[in-house]
Amino acid sequence: MYASPIARLVQQLAKLPGIGEKTAARLAFHILRASAEDAAVLAAAIVEVRQKIRFCSICCDLTEADPCAICRDQRRDGSLCCVVAQPQDVVAIERAGGYRGRYHVLHGVLSPLDGVGPDDLRVPELLRRCGDGTVAEAILATSPSVEGEATAVYLAKLLRPLGVRASRIATGVPMGGELEYADQVTLARAIDGRREM
């Protein structure tokens, strides 16, 4: 058995996703071997992230300053709102570049089976935003899974009466991908969603 401060650290680390007891122990011993300063910086970073990060009051993304940098950026097109499931999705779309509208982060997708309904997501915030006439189009960018599709269909139903155009991101063959390696469902969707040239 480890000395109790080590055991406590191992127990806390093992609560993290993807970290089992063994990995937790390895991380704990790594922290012990590192300099006291490194350990202090890590501990401070953990405390700081909890203290300083909050939800943006407009788009619900995680941010240090409220409103977040994207919501404050006047060069962004406020009439376009890209609705995503997770903060990581904002990062992914931003990294891709090209999109100059704003975002809304739901923090999940509908899944009655897991007890997740609209009130567990940032849906009321989205409706409030879309009700004031600034948003003309909502791009529903949840993933094409059962839950992601249902979430998009549901939001489209609520947004249309508010005079907001609801669009769905395209699905199909990835860029640089070979047709022959695409799975059948993706290929069938790509054929369905073909466009005129």
Partner: peptide
């Protein structure tokens, strides 16, 4: 659930 839009969603899906 009493949210008709939510039931409509699952009907359509």
């Amino acid at each position: 659930s009493s949210d008709p839009a939510l039931l409509d969603t699952y009907d359509e899906e």
